[in-house]
Design a protein around this nucleic acid. Structure first.
Lengths: 347, 347
DNA sequence: ATGACTTGTGCAACCGTTTGTATATTAATA
DNA sequence: TATTAATATACAAACGGTTGCACAAGTCAT
């Protein structure tokens, strides 16, 4: 018979290394973890043997023994088809991944795709001992996930601001109130007097904060805060075009709209232009997220860059603090930038 | 003393359940796995006790004992900042997540963010026993990852087409050759005679296939395949604007461009228009990925929808076949759709 | 030479499940 | 009634590591 190259599924264990080195498994284990109780000579000798044998530690076994996994869970919200249409999620994920990688954490993701419910997913992650910590990106007004994690004191951090009565929750957010305040001021500054707002989903704290910022600017400038100019809905084009039409058809038509997301803004913009109304001449539009769309769209949009990547990486840093040092209650506000473009510049 | 609500970190083990039920741990284990050797009566009794005690199986321990994890790894390619700018990755990920969730697989992701190299990441996943299978989204011409996975016969599936000499690799792809062929035909059909192509990165099989499709259409229609009209580069705007300029400045200026991605196409479009050349009148443009941009951009782009979500879900289905049934060598070609818009319609 | 301390290593229990095999009980067969 | 087959459960050894504690040998001061 001819010889055959045998590709071993390579499961060299700590015990085999130990036997080969003529020491006990515990010694090898301590070599791996750089335990100072092992002499330099032994350490080197065993390291060499490990290399030679192609030893690779089994993460699962280690997790079981140490009761920690080196993995964090990220819960992507909603079952909606368009989670990923909004660049916020992928970008935040990128920020998370960057810091995670740097600190040797793996990332377990879960999209709430089959309506299991986020809480169920989290429970599965935690009670199944699959993760050491969790990053929440959802952030509803009264989020049962937050309550749950808080109650069992499991390490987590939140992108967004918790609305609950709970203190001591690690979170990172941008100043939605301030951003909307400034955006509204900008609108007023370019001479708009009747400004509508298409905010996001009603039950998000983000939405509430933005409306407050809007209101503050409006009132500060002596305009009237008119609730009939406040619209809420989901983050898709349809919402935009629907409210866009409504706004364009009001008898006392607004001359400016603040929108919660670029895509929604384009929905509105399209609907408005279809009715023969000009943007920005008749109605100015400003929105959030500074996606590629706002730059390359047929009318470049003034848009707030909330720096999603930063949001993600800071959230991961907070989480590491929570896991490794028991930190609770940190709060980070990341800066935003308003990019002014044609949709509010007349140019 | 007052009574206190004690929130247990909840580690009810199989042994505790067993003791409480007066049976052995193995019986409980078999109850969990619905082993028919356990009587109906016992099964029900123990189920009740498990509920009552709040038992939740420890996934790590199970993984160790069964030597499988219920987790798959997804390798997001390149360390580049713009992995997520291209909607392909998030969308494919969504497709993967959908099927994974349905089949009770978790998803471990890793972006090759700190230059560790994809191979290192894969090795860590596999040798650390962290995953049961892997989905590759990279697909370079001679991919060491593919070689590696193939050699150790580890279950994986590929989004894209392997170029290597290797047979029997599960993969799913769209017909890049055909899509580009049809796109080029469309260009010719609207009267364009000198068509350039800005393909993707040179070392991707996708790029090579697209160029072939382009060439085939060109030659079939009696035009000349001119390599000086073939450009290759990365998937960002800069590439687009750079080559856009080059093309617009050619002494015998092309009247059509096929571009590998919408974002790149916009880079080109901007550069071209800056030079006072009209799209689509002077130069028509068609591209790939059918992103929001191609719909809402200032000139709507004719674009190929490669159906990334489908690509992802099929890849996951193949992977499950590979893991659970040892299937190797399946190949799935998913259909594409060309959306014709103003950039090639003159309208 | 004795006791105390330091240093390097081994022993064995444990992390929470799974699973092949043995055993006890009951039912069926001759 | 003895024998066999089927059924239901227990035992114990894995899976691959980690870690508290014990122990042996060497060093040092007395």
């Amino acid at each position: 018979m001819g010889s055959e190259i045998l590709i071993k599924k390579s499961t060299v264990t700590i015990k085999e290394v130990a036997k080969r080195a003529g020491v006990s498994p515990s010694t090898v284990s301590r070599v791996i973890s750089n335990n100072p109780r092992i002499s330099k000579a032994t350490t080197e000798r065993i390291r060499a043997i490990m290399d030679e044998m192609g030893y690779y530690p089994n993460a699962i076994a280690r997790s079981l023994a140490k009761n920690m996994t080196g993995t964090i869970g990220v819960i992507l919200p909603t079952t909606s088809e368009d989670v990923f249409l909004n660049p916020f999620f992928p970008e935040a994920l990128r920020g998370i991944a960057k810091i995670a990688s740097k600190n040797n954490y793996d990332i377990l993701i879960s999209t709430n795709i089959d309506k299991k419910g986020e809480l169920k997913i989290i429970e599965n992650f935690i009670r199944g001992s699959k993760v050491d910590g969790i990053i929440l990106m959802s952030n509803k007004l009264d989020d049962e996930c937050i309550e749950y994690l808080y109650n069992i004191d499991f390490p987590f951090s939140l992108i967004g601001t918790p609305n609950t009565h709970l203190e001591n929750i690690n979170h990172v957010d941008n100043d939605n109130l301030l951003a909307t305040y400034e955006l509204t001021k900008h609108m007023i500054c370019i001479g708009r007097k009747r400004i509508a707002i298409i905010a996001g989903e009603e039950n998000l704290t983000m939405t509430q904060n933005r409306i407050q910022g809007y209101k503050k600017a409006i009132e500060e400038e002596g305009l009237v805060f008119d609730t009939s100019l406040v619209f809420m809905g989901s983050f898709d084009e349809k919402t935009g075009s629907q409210y866009g039409k409504v706004i364009a058809n009001m008898k006392d038509m607004p001359d400016g709209i603040i929108v919660a997301d670029d895509l929604v803004a384009y929905g509105a913009l399209m609907a408005i232009e279809e009715l023969g109304i000009k943007v920005p001449e008749d109605i100015a539009i400003a929105s959030f997220n500074n996606s590629i769309l706002s730059k390359y769209g047929n009318i470049p949009l003034t848009s707030v860059d909330i720096n999603s990547v930063e949001l993600g990486s800071k959230a991961m840093e907070l989480l590491i603090d929570a896991i490794e040092r028991g930190v609770r209650g940190s709060r980070i506000i990341t800066p935003f930038t308003i990019f002014k473009r044609r949709s509010t510049m007349g140019g």
